[in-house]
């Protein structure tokens, strides 16, 4: 069913500063969409609106046929848990948990024991099996981000949102991360929405959206 938004507006503060200015967008299931633009163009804000983390000032977002604004708090969080995966610029791993425990956090919410097999397979696939029992502080930046991606993929979500996932990584690790994200989209059919300021990575997407001052100025397929 994908993600769609109509006349999406988001403003902050008083007097209000409008960041997103009436965006209409349609993302199909299985799409790989990149959102790029200069700093302050509103690309991260648009990602958070599309991914239910934030609510619009006006306009509407529909994801998987439902409006996040109309869901109850518990239903919204259950939807996030089961259907959405997030990768941020910072890994946001819990420092007191091992890599494996971090990756299993989404599954732990509903005592989903089956996820462990899947997560272990992802650790091997991403070549970080030796990191499983280590704390985040014992891992390199690239390994930390890969663990964060395993966490995002642990519930086999239908939508994967990545906000500058390579922003803190060197070129080698950036390539590894991008390869994983592409794999998630191409081989596992996840809808991938990527925010990046790297033109090369933006160009990997089937659909490129370029934002300027809160407005889509260019769309390329």
């Amino acid at each position: 069913m994908g993600i769609s938004c109509q006349r999406l507006i988001k403003s902050f503060g008083e007097p209000p500063t409008v960041i997103i200015k009436g965006i209409d967008l349609n993302i199909e299931d299985g799409d790989f969409v990149s959102i790029s633009g200069r700093s302050g163009s509103g690309k991260s804000t648009l990602l958070y609106l599309l991914s239910t983390l934030d609510l619009p000032s006006s306009g509407s977002v529909m994801i998987d046929g439902q409006s996040p604004a109309e869901l109850s708090v518990d239903a919204l969080h259950q939807f996030r848990n089961e259907s959405l995966g997030f990768v941020f610029q910072f890994h946001y791993l819990l420092p007191e948990l091992t890599a494996l425990e971090n990756a299993l956090l989404p599954a732990r919410k509903n005592n989903n024991v089956d996820a462990k097999t899947h997560v272990n397979a992802l650790f091997e696939l991403f070549d970080i099996q030796t990191a499983r029992d280590k704390l985040p502080s014992q891992l390199s930046g690239g390994e930390q981000q890969r663990v964060a991606i395993v966490r995002a993929l642990s519930m086999k979500p239908r939508y994967l949102f990545a906000d500058e996932p390579t922003g803190n990584l060197d070129s080698v690790n950036s390539k590894i991360v991008m390869d994983i994200l592409k794999k998630a989209n191409k081989e596992w059919g996840m809808t991938l929405i990527l925010v990046t300021h790297e033109p090369d990575y933006a160009a990997m997407a089937e659909k490129e959206i370029f934002l300027k001052d809160g407005v889509i100025v260019n769309t390329a397929s």
Partner: peptide, 16 residues
């Protein structure tokens, strides 16, 4: 705060 943010984004509601 970061951990709380990530817990919320992976589906842990305010009550948890």
């Amino acid at each position: 705060r970061r951990e709380i943010a990530i817990l919320r984004s992976i589906g842990y509601p305010p009550s948890m």
